[in-house]
Amino acid sequence: MKRLLLLSAAALLVACSNEEAPPEPVRPVLSVEVKALNQEDLGRFAGSIQARYESNVGFRVPGRIASRNVDVGAEVQKGALLATLDPTDQQNQLRSAQGDLARVQAQLINAQANARRQQELFNRGVGAQAQLDIAQTDLKTTQASLDQARAAVDQAKDQLNYVELRTDHKAIVTAWNAEAGQVVTAGQQVVTLAQPDIKEAVIDLPDTLVDQLPADVVFQVASQLDPSITSTAVVREIEPQAQSATRTRRTRLSLTDTPPGFRLGTAISVTLSSAIKPRLELPVSALQEVDGKLRIWVVDPQTQTVAPREVSLISRTDATVVLANGVKSGERVVSAGVNSLKPGQKVKIDEGSPQ
């Protein structure tokens, strides 16, 4: 009886050994697609679109502003009238100069007649040489006075013309610094004009960042109201000294192209980035350390299995790791649950995994 029991148990063990082992369960995992980074972000700053060329203009003569003919934001053509002064003083100066000219012209007629008379007397032998010399000298002096009076009239006419402030180029009025009724001096800044043809981006950068900007820095410029309006830019000018209150330096950027949406005064967002050697960034949860070596788990899209792969680390933060090699752009890597995987294990990629 005991022998029969032993034989039955042996037969049962043989039958069990001939059965196949149960398959490994398919494990759902989170994964990410590897993407190479070619740019390093240095920051994002706010700024505005401004004209590269601006001019602060004023009257060439002093006086009281009689009228202001355009408003801020107006686009004016070459020769357009911006403002005028009260012309009373200049008109009086012109009349005074014209009166002096008439007086000198009358004096010249007398001097010419006297010079001719003295010359005739001298030619007949009844006139003295001294009287002839005096007459000729008086004629030359009067002629010089006439030239001076004519110049004074021309100058007075110019002064009268200067009571009108006109543009010498197409421009947009960006600021007024004086109002009608205000008395201004010659050359005092009255209005600011911007040439609209050439625009640039203007931002304020921290003084510490300016000193660290690489030579190949790239600026991405986008409209704050419509981020789809973009352009690239390069540094044209950086102020040599930082502003004492903010410790920032005004930076002017030349735009590669100027979309129509980049109007003067448009608020922009400027992103600074620098070209770097391509590198690979993954979530820190994708990294596994085994026996002092770092590895990741790469998903085979054909077989839906995973395999470990050793990698080299460049840098690490609380959230991400930057790899030097071991994986290629476009491959998919398990981003969570790496400690429970085995080589060749089948996995199910979560549809909610980031792409």
Rank of each mutant, 00 (worst) to 15 (best):
Y53I: 12
I238H: 03
T141P: 00
N18S: 15
R52C: 10
E33L: 07
G43D: 08
A51K: 00
D100P: 01
R103M: 13
L5R: 06
L42H: 11
V322W: 14
T208Q: 09
D291K: 05
V327D: 11
D300F: 00
V218R: 12
L272W: 04
G187A: 10
L42E: 00
I109N: 14
L139R: 11
N56G: 08
D291C: 01
V70Y: 14
S335R: 08
V218M: 10
R249L: 12
N38H: 11
E33F: 08
G337E: 02
D300W: 00
V235W: 00
A233F: 01
R60L: 15
D226Y: 05
D207T: 13
A233Y: 01
A267D: 11
V76D: 09
Q188P: 05
S315F: 01
D216C: 04
L253V: 05
V184D: 01
S312F: 03
G292L: 04
P62A: 03
A51S: 14
K342Q: 14
P308M: 06
T230A: 10
A171C: 06
A128I: 06
D211A: 14
P227I: 00
N38Y: 06
R263I: 10
Q243P: 03
D100K: 10
V210P: 07
F45I: 02
V190P: 09
V34G: 00
A11T: 09
P260F: 03
G326Q: 02
A11K: 02
S329V: 03
Q345P: 00
P259I: 00
G352F: 10
Q129E: 13
L282F: 07
A267Y: 09
E289G: 05
A151E: 06
G58Y: 03
E40F: 13
A245R: 14
D226E: 10
N18V: 14
S353K: 07
A83M: 02
V299K: 08
Q355M: 10
V334M: 03
A324R: 12
V334W: 05
A15T: 06
D197T: 12
R150L: 11
Q107V: 05
L37S: 09
E237S: 13
A178G: 07
A275Y: 13
G79I: 11
R236D: 15
L101T: 04
A115I: 02
D138P: 01
V184C: 02
S273L: 09
W176K: 05
P240S: 13
F262G: 01
L139S: 04
S67P: 01
A178N: 05
A111D: 04
P25M: 06
R316A: 14
G181S: 02
I238E: 03
A175T: 06
V284K: 09
V14I: 09
Q243K: 14
T230H: 07
E200Y: 03
K140G: 05
K348E: 15
T192K: 15
Q155H: 08
N177C: 04
T142D: 06
P25L: 06
L225W: 04
Q302R: 12
E24A: 10
V322T: 15
Q112P: 07
V333Y: 01
T303H: 09
V284H: 12
R252A: 08
I314A: 13
